[in-house]
Design a protein around this nucleic acid. Sequence first.
RNA 1: GCCCUCGUAGCUCAGGGGAUAGAGCAGUGGCCUCCGGAGCCAUGAGCGCAGGUUCGAAUCCUGCCGAGGGCGCCA
Length: 534
Amino acid sequence: MITEVLAQALADSFRDLHIEIAATDVQMERPAAREHGDWSSNVALVMSKRLERNPRELATELAKIVESQGLNVIKEIEVAGPGFINFYLSPQWLHDVLIDVLTQGEHNYARPTVGDGASINLEFVSANPTGPLHAGGGRWGAYGDSLARIFRRCGYRTFTEYYVNDRGIQTELFGASLVARRDGGELPEDGYAGEYVAEWAREMPDEAEPVAWGQERALKDVQDSLASMNVTFDHWASEKALVESGAMEEVVDLLRDSGWVDDRDGATWLRTSEFGDEKDRVLIKSDGEPTYFVPDIAYHNQKFDRGELVIDVLGADHHGYVPRMAAAMKMLGHPSDRYEAIIGQNVTLVRNGEEIKLSKRTGTMVEVSELIEAVGPDVARFAYLLQSIDTRQTIDIDVLSSEANENPVYYVQYAHARIAAVSREATNRGISRRPVDAMDVTVLQHERELEILRCLSTLPEIVEFAARDRAPHRVATWIRELAAAFHGFYHDCPVLRSDVAAEIQQARLWLVETARIGFAIGLDLLGITAPEEM
RNA sequence: GCCCUCGUAGCUCAGGGGAUAGAGCAGUGGCCUCCGGAGCCAUGAGCGCAGGUUCGAAUCCUGCCGAGGGCGCCA
């Protein structure tokens, strides 16, 4: 990596000043403005205080020494602003990027090793099987699935799960609601009122056991919806199976052994407040029934068998639940850095310019399946993934549908389709790529050509940061930049036109191939298709 | 009242303590003589407010204002 070369050069020049500094402590950054060079270091600013030196003077001295080292990638060094050292490089470093991308290929380029085989258990969506998945739930699906792809690319062994709450009060209420709709009876208090309940009730066979049938019907619906947006799971964990296995009793015993369980007021409590929770939580109610918290603890405890790091993706409406679960995990002996909850902000659904409040009473909702039907999985996923999980998202199904053609995902996919079109046209014209080592990369000097390589050079760190920050939207943002770079290139730099010199044509064909690799990697991480034509 | 997240261009959003804060959409004006115009180029406008830390703050800290969410022996 070029940054390592430059950082080392700076570290070496410190040595000339009899100051020891590790190359890894020298920060290299891309200047925001192109006029400030290809790479820049703030090391003089950072060190000036410790050395009690004027930062500009220090920078000037360092620059002079680096210059005398005579690295041939460096075209020019300048000291700018308060003491930045700016490097202007020959395009050679970008030519190296091209070779890197081609030799490593789609499979190996931008495959950071930070995961190093560590395992992650990632749970997301886990909506109750009491109805179709609403469009808000789609956000967790897109996010979790993409995050899993990013983790895997970074070398984490990743296991994804959906926790199915297929027992308990909610499923019973749902079953009762189905019966009420079928028989024309009154809906139970807090029952499910959505239109789908009546629809499904008509489907329900007379001999079916309503609770089990309803729960299966809903789960099937959720699974189909997620599959239609290309979201799959390694494991659908059944709460019912968990409870029937005796896991609740086991985990309560474990907690009792840990000494954090109290019996008071006729109930059984877990002293979670001693681990940062606001208050203690009831495990077993005074009527003898366990709260929902118990199977949840048992489930989370078991997930540690399927991953060293257990991550939950939760909606903001569940964030208050995190401290108690974190407390329980600590009590069960799982170190606090092994359990992580990612809190995503909720989705606001809008239709006809009006916010749709999810309501059990009125039963209004926008279903994921409806969204996918209207705009397709790629538009939906890109819309979900373009935005940071920390910000509230508004999904306006009308806007998404009507503006589908201007959707940013097409901008990206169109670039990929153009690449495929170049290949097809090359075949038509009888033009083929000669071996990489027969190519003269140095003919790539056009700013549009270099911009593609500059963009590709950032992909490895983009992937790594996306994993570290649990932020798939970084990949989405990046791939738009690559698309912009490619469209610009495509506009200004003909590849197959007859007036293009043979060696330039060869180099551009290979450049197009690197862009294809970039799109393939990025789109795969987002779980979006890479079309050959549109 | 306490806790969590967020407040950036007319709208939807990016922005790992760095220099002149960027995209898309919407607006305006340009660009099809051979690879796909779902494209390219140009153009206007912005960090909620007030302090603090720092050589340097949209970014970190505090307070205020605003938005959403959470504070059950519900799930």
